[in-house]
Design a protein around this nucleic acid. Sequence first.
DNA 1: TCTGGGGTCCTCTCCCTA
DNA 2: TCTGTAGGGAGAGGACCC
Length: 407
Amino acid sequence: MSRRQLVRPDAGGWGLDDDDTGCTVLHVDMDAFYASVELLRRPDLAGTPVIVGGGERGVVLSATYEARRYGVHAAMPMARARRLCPPATVLVPHHEDYARISAGVMEVFRSVTPLVEPLSLDEAFLDVSGAVRRLGSPTRIGELLRDRVADEQGITCSVGVASTKFVAKLASGGAKPDGLLVVPHAQTVAFLHALPVEALWGVGDRTAEALGRLGLRTVADIAHTPLTTLVRGLGEATGRHLHALAWGRDARRVLASVPERSIGAEETFPRDVDDPRYVHRELLRLAGRTASRARAQGLAGRTVVLKVRFADFTTITRSRTLRERTDVTQEIHATARDLFDALALDRARLRLVGVRLEGLADSATAPRQLLLGERTHGWREADGAVDRAGARFGAGSVRPATLLPRR
DNA sequence: TCTGGGGTCCTCTCCCTA
DNA sequence: TCTGTAGGGAGAGGACCC
C-alpha cells in the first residue's frame, strides 16, 4: 500500500524531526474510517467519491476524501450529500465490519502499550511512556503504529504526538489524512494560540457564538482574557475549562478503562407516527436492546430515561429513578411506557423515541431485594434465556410476540 | 439543509432534609 | 412550631463529541 510520507509542512513547521521529549501521549485517528472499511469490500471504488449512510431520513456516516472535495461531510443529511456529490457511490453501513476492524486496530495499539483509551471505534489515546525504551521515541512509535495498522488491517490512520491528550488530538486532526504531526512541548502554546476558538474541545456552534459576542475569535484571544470574564460569559465550568486549554493545561491522563455511565437505544421512525400502540411496541424493542447490552456488560442501572422527539424536532426527556438497579427488559419497558403515557400526548406526531439507562453499576454487586410475592423465576430468567438463544442463533432470534412481524 | 445514534458533561430548578 | 438557609439528589434540557 502506498502511503503519504508523514507530517505536514503547512501546519506551522512542526514535524517528524522535532524534539518529542515528554510527548508521550499519542492520539490515533483512522482516516474516513467507515468509508475506508467499505473500500475493503469494494476495492473497485478506491479513488472515487463514496458516501456511507442510509435510510430515508439518514445522515452521512462517513465519506471518502474524494467525496469530501464536493463539500460532503459526516452528519450531513443524505439528501443534501447526494445533491452536492452526484457521482458518489452510496453504500449502506456494515457495522459488524467496523467493530471487527476496530478490534484488530485496538489489538495493535495494546501490543505497544497497555495504556490505550478508545474514544470510539475509530480513535484512541495511547500513553507510550512505558514503551519508549523498548521501541524508540514517541514519534517512532507513532510511525510503527501507522505501518502496522496499514499492513494488518488495510486502512490508514493519522497520529498526533504531544504532551497532553487535547493537543495530541488537535495534532492528529492537523496530520490528516495519512500523516503524523508532533507538537513539541515547548511549542504547545504557540501552536494553540494560532488556532480559531472552534478548535478547542468543547466549543461548538453555541459556545463559539458566545465567545464571538465577547469579541474572542482565536485561542490566543481566550488565553489573554481574564478568567472572571470567561466565567461570567460562559459559566463556571466552561470558562475555566477553555482558559486552561488555551494555555495548554490538560491534566487528564490516558485511562485504559473508563466506566460507562449510561447505555441506551433510540430510533428515528421512517415516517412520523402518532399511534401510541406503535410507540409502546417501539419502546419494548428499545428497552430490549438497552437491557441486553447492559446485561452483556454485566451492568444494571437505576434511572430510566425516555426521550421523545416531535415532528418539529423539539425534543424532551423524562426520567424516573427506581428503588433498585435493573437490567430486566420488562422493568425498563414498563418504566419507559409509564413515562410516555404520563405525557398524555394527544396523538402528537413523533419523529423519534429513545430509552436510556443511567446510574450504572456492576449488576453482580447491585443489591436486589425480592418483593413480597415476587416469583423467583420471572422476567430475569426469561431475559437470560433470550441472551443465550441470541448468542447461539443470532441477535433477535427470540423476541416478544408483540414484536413479531404482522401478517 | 433539514437534521442518526450513542454517548458525556454542565446548568438550572425543584424538592427534601437538617 | 415556624422561618431561613444550605446542601444534596433528582429531573429536565441543552451543548457537545464522534
